[in-house]
Design a binder for these strands. Structure first.
Lengths: 336, 336
DNA sequence: CCTTGCTGCGCAATCGGTTGTCCTTATGTT
DNA sequence: AACATAAGGACAACCGATTGCGCAGCAAGG
């Protein structure tokens, strides 16, 4: 039973015996909580360091009712998680969690099939949950609320009382679009992704809001949502060009990358024949020639922020219900 | 302290009290181990089901010296993990682990910086480790051996006594190349990825072995390793074409996808002007027109297999030192 | 000199399970 | 009827930490 590799595991009792003290003294020396002599404390700490003792988080967790684990929920369909955004965001979560001696447990949900998440939460395997993205009718949110597990959503949602960390996609897309309008563009097309994702809906709204404000016309024929494959993007691009679009607004880096490839293949010159902008910048497009006008966010920052916020909640610290992180508009040659 | 959401947690003692039995009886009813009456067992089980009691894995883990967690080690640089292969492979690991009530803890390593992995292992947070890929001089392997934690590597390695699950890349690449030679191709070029990855080195060797066997010449000028960016691939493609290559062998789906894009942009007709094959098939290239000759593996199977093998090790079951999973050669129009 | 108060530390209970041991019954054998 | 045997279940120890409580020792105050 158990694993033999733990054979050389040092317990708090071993340390206590070796030092001729009690377990409580060792525990207090480590935590710094409770009353303990300065000298004793240092003696314990130096012994621990030397013998490489690490408290068993399982035992620690049992007595503290903690797991020292956080569930990171990602969609199981690879299309999203494969994006650099997600990788960076997770890196941020991992870093921030590690700093608090926490680890990341993968929760994989398929669209709205949240059985894996349910198993993890109902088994009490985590202290909190970070949702990697939000859907329009996200079943995981009501479930998490009902189960009372603390959680933070990366992305926005209409559910009430949900702590959300997000970039201000509405404002960003609105601003970028407005700038392009100022530059004289009058006919836009939007090539968008899965409309089931909140972020995509918000980006569309920010975009449309700018058009409305500046009284630029657009019809549904110029809006191509749910472009999930390269073929979808190609079809959308073809139609948009035929409809006389002056500028293609790509909803994310994946779509933009596919759009660029399509345009190059057709020898449509970016900036001369057609302008193009992306609502999200990443290495998928950042090395392109000509350079691409895009919105820049910091996904790692997003992950770090979400994780830190979750820790605040776990520690009973009041947190803001909704935090909007900054963004940057990067005007490049593709819209010159 | 702790989390309030656990407030409604039902413990084994609650169940025992409600049924007028002892904790041990409940425990034995659940595990099926030890002596327990059939009737009692069913009474307990039905109560548990009805009241949705789930044993606390932390407590269970403490008494069994288990964590019910497995560390899934992935490279932190997004280039690899972003590939569909990795996503599928992880899905397999998650599925197989879930089936045994195990969960996946993320271990993120940056090239050979394995501090995160070390923290997880030395903190005893997992029962075993699955390495998502192997490097030529993989520092994580000697560390894992030394720490005595059971682990399985997806991919091959020269380190001794390491349990490895892999596709037979050597044989597969050798076979595909041989077939293409039979079809009359005499001048190949290889566009390859990071030579620090074992899989890439093995694919190259399988490829070269076929050429040698069939006495087809190739020089270092026709082998382009370490193509990490699209630009690298484009440069390699240009040079290969100039050198008179008849067939471009792409080492993986990412490279192949970039190669296809480059060829289309240059209006080089695939199959007519140049033949092309990929050592790995995925949706990055599977929808292409013309269809692409490629090697097909089952990454999910790989993940499942690795996880099951790890469980065997944990359960003291003898396992094969090295398992090679099957592959399939898919001849399509790109090499007609 | 006795009381008060504080400090440092050990004892033991606790977290929620698992499992070896022992006691009580029911069953089977002669 | 007497006894051996097995089965079912309760008890308590244990996994490795944390933490409330209490006790000893010492300094300060009256």
């Amino acid at each position: 039973m158990g694993n033999e590799y733990i054979e050389d595991k040092v317990t708090i009792e071993d340390v206590a015996n070796a030092l001729g003290t009690s377990k409580s003294t060792v525990s207090r020396a480590i935590s710094g909580k409770g009353r303990i002599g300065k000298e004793t404390r240092e003696r314990v700490l130096s012994y621990i360091k030397e013998h490489n003792y690490k408290p068993n988080p399982i035992a620690k967790g049992l007595s503290e009712s903690k797991t020292y684990n956080i569930c990171w929920v990602v969609p199981g369909d690879s299309s999203m998680t494969a994006l650099p955004f997600f990788q960076r965001c997770m890196a941020g979560v991992v870093d921030a969690a590690s700093a608090e001696n926490y680890d990341i447990l993968m929760g994989v949900v398929y669209d709205n099939n949240i059985s894996h998440l349910k198993r993890i939460v109902s088994n009490h395997k985590v202290d909190g949950v970070i949702l990697g993205r939000t859907l329009i009718n996200d079943e995981s949110i009501p479930y998490l609320i009902e189960s009372k597990v603390p959680f933070v959503a990366i992305g926005s949602t209409d559910y009430k009382d949900v702590v959300q960390i997000d970039n201000d996609h509405f404002k960003a897309c609105n601003e970028l679009t407005s700038i392009l309008i100022m530059k004289g563009i009058k006919k836009f097309a939007l090539i968008g992704g899965d409309s089931n994702h909140v972020v995509n809906r918000t980006r569309r709204e920010g975009f449309l809001h700018a058009l409305k404000e500046q009284k630029i016309d657009i019809t549904d024929d110029d809006i191509f949502m749910n472009c999930l494959s390269d073929e979808d993007v190609e079809r959308a691009t073809d139609t948009a060009l035929r409809n006389g679009a002056e500028c293609l607004m790509c909803m994310d880096d994946g779509i933009c990358s596919a759009t660029i490839a399509k345009l190059k293949r057709d020898e449509v010159s970016i900036s001369e024949d057609i302008k193009i902008a992306s609502f999200y910048n990443s290495e998928l497009i950042s090395n392109n020639q000509p350079t691409i006008t895009a919105l820049q966010y910091d996904p790692k920052e997003l992950g770090i922020n979400a994780c830190k916020t979750l820790f605040d909640i776990l520690n009973g610290i009041e947190v803001e219900q909704k935090v909007m992180l900054s963004y940057e508009v990067q005007l490049k040659s593709s819209t010159q």
